[in-house]
């Protein structure tokens, strides 16, 4: 639950009000899309929800935890256990293989040995990349990279999956596949998903559409 949060940035163009008094509530297990044009404040809102940004005002309750009030250590702990991120460009760690990238959040969460190996194999099968386990990120296509990114984000069964424009660099078909993959995996793992996007073609995959403009929520449509 997001309650009256605001976030501003200072830049060469002066003060930018990225998020202005935003309040919203996303039900547990729901797949929500935050839609808006570039620069509308979608990414900042997601970053605030995920604890990557600290808003100047307001409160963010993530499964009952006020994450904007956590200490740095407690926030890292919360992110590690309960959050998963999918970034615009996949952002896999370039020096780790596909399997190692997927295994990273597992190890961070203390899942090691056979359990870790089995989980990686399962996820690789789910994203249909069993043969690419030892491939490095630069050997993958854009769509494959995003599939691995989704698998990595969901590997440790996070309660909340945040996806910032995960289909922005993909063609329509690949984008739809990624959205569907997120939906399926989210549903299977019981994760709540919030996805920032400006792609209207993805609306069919989501449960709720939150429209944002100039840092303010314009509307919230159940689907």
């Amino acid at each position: 639950m997001v309650s009256h949060i605001s976030k501003t940035f200072r830049s060469g163009r002066g003060q930018v009000n990225a998020v202005v008094d935003v309040s919203l509530k996303v039900p547990t297990g729901c797949f929500a899309a935050v839609m808006g044009k570039s620069g509308s404040g979608k990414s900042t809102l997601l970053n605030c929800i995920g604890g990557l940004e600290i808003p100047e005002r307001g409160e963010i309750l993530c499964f009952g935890t006020p994450i904007n009030r956590l200490t740095a250590g407690a926030l890292s702990h919360f992110q590690r256990h309960h959050l998963g991120f999918v970034f615009q460009r996949g952002n896999l760690l370039s020096y780790l293989t596909v399997a190692e990238n997927i295994g990273l959040p597992l190890t961070l969460n203390g899942i090691v040995g056979a359990a870790r190996t089995k989980r990686i194999e399962t996820l690789l099968a789910e994203i249909d990349l069993e043969t690419a386990a030892k491939a490095l990120p630069h050997e993958l296509s854009g769509g494959e990279t995003q599939r691995v990114s989704v698998a990595r984000a969901i590997a440790h069964h996070p309660k909340l999956l945040l996806a910032d424009e995960p289909t922005a660099n993909l063609d329509t078909t690949s984008g739809a596949q990624i959205a569907q993959l997120m939906r399926n995996m989210g549903r299977e793992h019981g994760s709540t998903i919030i996805m920032a996007t400006h792609d209207r073609d993805l609306i069919d995959s989501v449960d709720v559409v939150i429209t944002i403009k100039d840092g303010q929520v314009q509307g919230e449509n159940q689907r």
Binding site: G50, L52, A72, G73, S76, H77, F78, Q79, R80, H81, L83, F85, F87, N91, L93, S94, L104, P105, L108
Partner: peptide
């Protein structure tokens, strides 16, 4: 040069 990767790790909950 690799700063983005450190940002990703931080987002994953890797502590300072």
């Amino acid at each position: 040069r690799n700063m983005r990767e450190y940002g990703i790790m931080k987002a994953m909950g890797v502590t300072s």
